[in-house]
Write a protein that binds this DNA or RNA. Structure first.
Lengths: 331, 331
DNA sequence: ATCGTAGGCTTAACCGTTTAACCCGGCAAG
DNA sequence: CTTGCCGGGTTAAACGGTTAAGCCTACGAT
């Protein structure tokens, strides 16, 4: 059954297609009677504008791209949901692109997105040293998340403050020997968070070991052995799923958390509260971040001449059961 | 910077747009020299076809919709990834739609998707009693997941076998008193899994309590109290995230899993292996399911007259540490 | 009575492709 | 020497909308 076109409606209502268009868009001037007649016919035929045609004609596709580094990281679906909701509220659809953690897929995916002529892009790069490898200049506004590129708007959580909060908790709980799992080398936000942490750490605390790992639950075997070989009071991770991988290692090794040591995560993904022990972690307003990313993007779509925007959202500390104050028995 | 159009290419190559189109699509007959010249110009201008225009003209949008019941259930991102990957392999993009667990959003979202003229839809309904509430007949092929509708193809895991596997493990481990968290009332797959379980349960096992709950970690307070009030050997859930919610309850109540009782999940989401205790669960090939859903959809797009397809993928049991054989001390 | 103008419509161009139909020159077959 | 056909192109009509421009008619102001 062919979809009704604007011409079908026009014919049935005995007017031109232009009139139908005017009625539906509230542009032009049409008499109330004619307008009603048109609306009736629309209803009867179940007519809906073919948004492909509209997009093509007007150049406005009411569509944005969402390019995610890795859909299997539980952070991103939550983020995607925020984006999606904000988009839906404003009549936008979202094209999903999952780079699967691989720069090649990312490049290809961005090409594909570009071909689809979106009005904008929310981009969480796989790695943020992308400036060179970027495909042909993206011909639409872009908002990045989790990294800042000179030419694009960005939305981010205040990760520096997040690092500080981690340090403050360490101070409050009296931990001295710190293990640190930081983010991958290329991650600017990772570096900022690390700086916030280290610069706020109390004088009597020191970092016993540090590893720079990817944002995944996977912890390489040599690192695992090293981690278990060195006693610490508290481990700070760059990311909740790293923390989850770490907890698993300690569990397998019979190390009690928080009995023997504390673990502090970062992100506060849904799961942080659900696992055992539940995770003390820096809370990021994930959904709001997605929402904000869309808002910033929409602002720029509406007004391309806006000054560069860098939105920073507040974070907070959520204390659960993976941390506890250091028992003062051992001095 | 305006994107180059086919006209720009044609002009530069000194041919008509038709010729350019023929070269790019490998249709029509063009001399090798002309073809090369055209290709050079394409390269120089960085021309890429506007897929909106192509879609509009040909009626083939190389786009499918993916309507998910709830993006925050970790099962679905994994599923989405499978879909996404299969789609990308075949040059398709995917429009994401998240119903956020709400039928109203679902309806709206399906409308929006429909307006976008996709070539097909992979649909995981919020509830499967949707037959009535469905919007105007969807004018493209549809493949459902997690439910079977008479007029659509479907892809599913063999959930009946999954239920049987749960029962077989119970038999093997000698559990007698069973707690059962089944899926929501409206879930056909939930009923099938339940049937597989109950019909395979050994004669000496009996269900002490049963609750029908949504697929979320959230377990209502009265249910929680009831669960804790009745001793069982093993609890079977319809879903890993239900199991995760359950584990949390037991942890808070000081009940040891698997020491005091065993817990069996369903789905084997990524996290099942990461939590503590790691979850024994029925493994669904999540990514493959997504992949298969796209394949079935593509088959039908290519050939609308195919007989109705109902693809069933195998499941298996993954034993981890949330279960252990019943200690035979108490007879 | 005349003019200007506003209201209510229609006409037609255009968005960027694809593709059916046509055209033209050259060569092989009859 | 025709005729037919084929290779290599071009022209122009769609696809389904939007929108600038134009065309009446009626009406109020001068």
């Amino acid at each position: 059954m062919r979809r009704a076109t604007i011409r079908d409606v026009a014919e049935r209502a005995g007017v031109s297609t232009a009139t139908v268009s005017y009625v539906l868009n509230g542009t032009g001037s049409v008499s109330p009677e004619t307008a009603q007649r048109v609306r009736d016919c629309v209803e009867q035929l179940g007519y809906r504008a073919n948004s492909l045609a509209v997009a093509h004609r007007t150049g406005r596709s009411r569509t944005i791209g969402l390019a995610l580094a890795d859909l299997t990281n539980p952070f991103f679906p939550e983020f995607a949901r925020g984006v999606h909701r904000a988009a839906a509220e404003n009549g936008f659809s979202v094209f999903l692109m999952d780079a699967q953690g691989c720069p090649d897929h990312e490049l290809e995916g961005l090409q594909m997105l570009t071909d689809r002529v979106p009005e904008g892009l929310i981009w969480v790069p796989v790695a943020d040293d992308v400036l060179d490898s970027r495909p042909t200049p993206l011909p639409f506004p872009v908002v990045t998340f989790d990294c800042e590129l000179p030419e694009f708007d960005s939305v981010n959580a205040d990760v520096r403050r997040g690092g500080e909060l981690q340090a403050e908790l360490i101070a409050a709980q009296g931990h001295r020997r710190i293990g640190l799992i930081s983010g991958p080398e290329w991650s600017e936000t990772g570096r900022v968070r690390r700086a916030g942490l280290l610069e706020t750490l109390p004088p009597d605390a020191h970092v016993v070991w540090e590893y720079s790992l990817d944002y995944s639950t996977n912890i390489p075997e040599p690192v695992r052995q090293d981690i278990l070989a060195h006693e610490v009071d508290c481990v700070v991770t760059a990311n909740d799923i790293q923390a989850i991988g770490l907890l698993q290692i300690y569990r397998d090794a019979g190390v009690s958390v928080p009995g023997d040591l504390s673990v502090i995560g970062f992100d506060d993904i849904d799961l942080a509260a659900r696992i055992s022990p539940s995770l003390t972690t820096v809370h990021l307003p994930v959904g709001q971040l997605g929402h904000a990313a869309f808002e910033v993007l929409l602002d720029r779509i509406k007004n391309p001449d806006l000054p560069r925007q860098r939105r920073l959202l507040d974070v907070s500390m959520t204390i659960r059961s993976s941390t506890q104050p250091r028992v003062s028995s051992e001095p």
